[in-house]
Simulated assay, not measured.
Amino acid sequence: MIQYSLKCSEGHSFDSWFQSAAAYDKLAASGMVSCAVCGGSRVEKAIMTPRVRPARSAAETPATERPLSAPATPAEQALAEMRRKIEQNSDYVGRDFASEARRMHLGETPERSIYGEARIDEAKALIEEGIPVAPLPFLPNRKAN
Results as ranks from 00 to 15, higher is better:
97 F>W: 13
53 R>L: 13
79 L>I: 12
67 P>H: 05
46 A>R: 03
84 R>I: 00
89 N>G: 01
74 P>H: 02
53 R>H: 12
58 A>T: 12
83 R>M: 01
50 P>F: 00
57 S>D: 15
82 M>F: 06
76 E>Q: 10
90 S>M: 07
57 S>K: 13
57 S>Y: 14
73 T>A: 06
96 D>P: 01
93 V>G: 07
46 A>C: 01
75 A>Y: 00
81 E>A: 15
51 R>F: 10
60 E>S: 05
56 R>E: 11
105 H>N: 15
49 T>Q: 10
87 E>M: 12
60 E>Y: 02
99 S>C: 09
87 E>F: 02
69 S>V: 03
82 M>I: 09
88 Q>Y: 07
62 P>Q: 07
73 T>V: 05
56 R>W: 07
46 A>S: 13
53 R>Q: 13
76 E>C: 00
81 E>V: 07
103 R>L: 15
76 E>N: 00
71 P>L: 02
46 A>Y: 03
95 R>P: 12
69 S>R: 02
73 T>S: 12
90 S>D: 02
66 R>K: 09
105 H>C: 15
80 A>H: 01
77 Q>P: 01
89 N>V: 01
47 I>P: 05
69 S>Y: 05
57 S>N: 11
93 V>C: 09
81 E>G: 08
70 A>D: 10
57 S>H: 14
70 A>L: 14
45 K>Y: 02
54 P>T: 01
59 A>M: 12
45 K>D: 04
86 I>G: 02
75 A>V: 04
46 A>P: 03
70 A>M: 11
94 G>R: 11
64 T>R: 01
61 T>M: 12
46 A>G: 04
106 L>I: 08
57 S>V: 10
95 R>D: 15
67 P>T: 05
67 P>K: 04
92 Y>L: 12
80 A>P: 02
55 A>K: 09
101 A>D: 14
101 A>K: 08
82 M>R: 04
90 S>Q: 04
80 A>Q: 04
63 A>V: 09
88 Q>M: 09
53 R>W: 14
57 S>I: 15
70 A>V: 14
63 A>R: 03
65 E>M: 09
90 S>V: 04
53 R>A: 07
89 N>H: 06
103 R>E: 15
76 E>F: 00
64 T>C: 06
71 P>S: 03
80 A>T: 08
69 S>W: 06
86 I>W: 00
